[in-house]
Simulated scan of single mutants.
Amino acid sequence: MTDPFAEHRPLLFATAYRMLGSVADAEDILQDAWLKWHATEHATVDHPKAYLVRTVTNLALNRLTGARATREQYVGPWLPEPLVDGDPVAAAGETADSVSTAMLVVLESLGPVERVVFVLREVFGYSHAEIAGFLERPEPAVRQLAHRARAHVRARRPRFETDTAVRAEVTDRFLGACRGGDLGALMAVLAPDVTLWNDGGGRITAARRPLHGPDHVARWLLGVLAKPMLTGIEFGTAVVNGELSVIGRLGPFPVGVLTYDLRDGLIVNLRFQVNPEKLRGVDPRTGEPSPPPSRP
C-alpha cells in the first residue's frame, strides 16, 4: 500500500515552498510533518491528504510568524531561495505563475495568515470552508482574509511578458553582453526603469539597497564580474522558479542566480541571489551551501 505521505509529498512541498519562499524551510517543514504523520494512528485519519495539508499549513504558519522578526533584521534585500527546474506540481497558467520569483516577492509583503490563505485558496483551490477547518478560524473571517490578500496581490503584481521565445532571445543577449563586458549591449536589454536587488544576506558583499536605471545597473554588474577573484565563473541558463534564468558557477558550485521580469522585450526587474545559504537547492550534487571563491 502506498504511504499517503510519499504520495502527496510533491503537493506538500509545493505548498510549503510557496508559503515560505525557502527550499530549506520547506524541507524542514516536511520533515516535521512526516514525524507527526508517523506518530499518528493512521486508522483514525479519514482523509490523509487533508490531514497532511493541514499539518503542513500550520507548521508553515508557525515558521512564517517567527520569520517576520528575523527578516526585519536581515542584511540588505531579502529574496526567495531559488527553486531550480520548476515545481513538482506546477503546470501552465496560474499554478506555474504562483511559483515565480516575482510572485514570491509579492507574497512576502502579506501577513503570515493572509499568505497562507492566499496560497491555499488561489493556488491550490481549497474552499473557504476547508481553509477555515485547517486554520480553526470562522469561515467569514477566512473569506475576508482571502479577499484582502487577493486585492493586495493584484495591486502589487503587474503582468510581465511570458513569451518563452522572447525570454530566450533576451537571455542570450544579456549573457553575451555580460560575457563580453559590453556596457552598451547590456544597457540595451535593460528597461529605462530597471531595478536590481542583490541578496547577500550579510555573508557575501552585495549591494544593500536596490540599484535603479540601466546605466547604474549595467555598470554595477560588469564591475562585479570584472573582479579578479571572480575570474573563472561561467554563466549558463536554467529553469528557476518556472522561468528561464541565469546561474553562475565556479567549477561545479553555483555562486549566484539571476531571475528577472520582462516588459516589452526588456528586463525591468533583476534579482541577484548570491547568499550561499540560499543556494543549497540549486545543485543536486551538493547538499551544502556553495562556497564562494572569496569576498568581492
Rank of each mutant, 00 (worst) to 15 (best):
L83G: 14
T65A: 15
H216F: 06
E161W: 02
T162G: 07
P210I: 07
P292W: 01
T205W: 04
P77S: 10
Q144Y: 10
A238S: 13
L211Y: 11
N58A: 02
G93R: 05
T65M: 13
V99W: 00
S109Q: 08
P293L: 13
E27C: 02
I131E: 06
N198T: 12
F124P: 00
W220A: 08
G236F: 04
A67T: 02
F272S: 05
A188P: 04
P192V: 10
V153E: 05
I233L: 12
C178W: 06
L79C: 07
L190N: 11
L225S: 06
G223V: 07
A141S: 06
F134A: 13
A67I: 07
L135R: 10
G236V: 02
D25A: 13
E169D: 04
L104D: 14
R295M: 07
E139R: 15
K278V: 07
F5N: 04
K36Q: 12
L30V: 01
V117F: 02
L230E: 08
R285L: 14
R295W: 11
Q273G: 07
Y17M: 01
T95E: 01
N58L: 14
R263E: 00
T162R: 14
L183C: 04
T259M: 10
V189L: 05
V170K: 00
P289M: 09
M187Y: 02
E234W: 00
P80G: 12
V53W: 10
F235D: 01
H8Y: 15
V246W: 00
M1S: 10
L266R: 05
D85R: 13
E139L: 02
L270K: 05
R18Q: 03
N198A: 06
F235K: 10
A238K: 08
G242S: 11
P210W: 02
T57W: 05
N62C: 07
D193G: 08
D264W: 04
G133P: 06
A67Q: 15
A92P: 04
L262P: 13
G281T: 14
L244D: 12
G201N: 12
D46Q: 03
D199E: 03
F160D: 13
L196Y: 05
M1A: 14
S109N: 06
T101S: 01
E234F: 02
V153R: 13
T2R: 00
D182S: 02
T231D: 09
R154H: 00
A6E: 15
R219H: 03
A129L: 11
D28I: 03
F5S: 09
V117Q: 06
L61I: 10
R159A: 12
V282W: 09
T95M: 01
V99A: 10
G133C: 09
A207Q: 13
L35S: 04
F5C: 08
G76V: 07
V240H: 11
G202M: 10
D3G: 13
S100Y: 08
V194R: 07
R263D: 01
T15W: 07
C178N: 03
R121E: 03
D28K: 02
S127I: 03
Y51V: 02
A24S: 15
R121D: 01
M103N: 00
R148L: 14
P284N: 11
G133M: 09
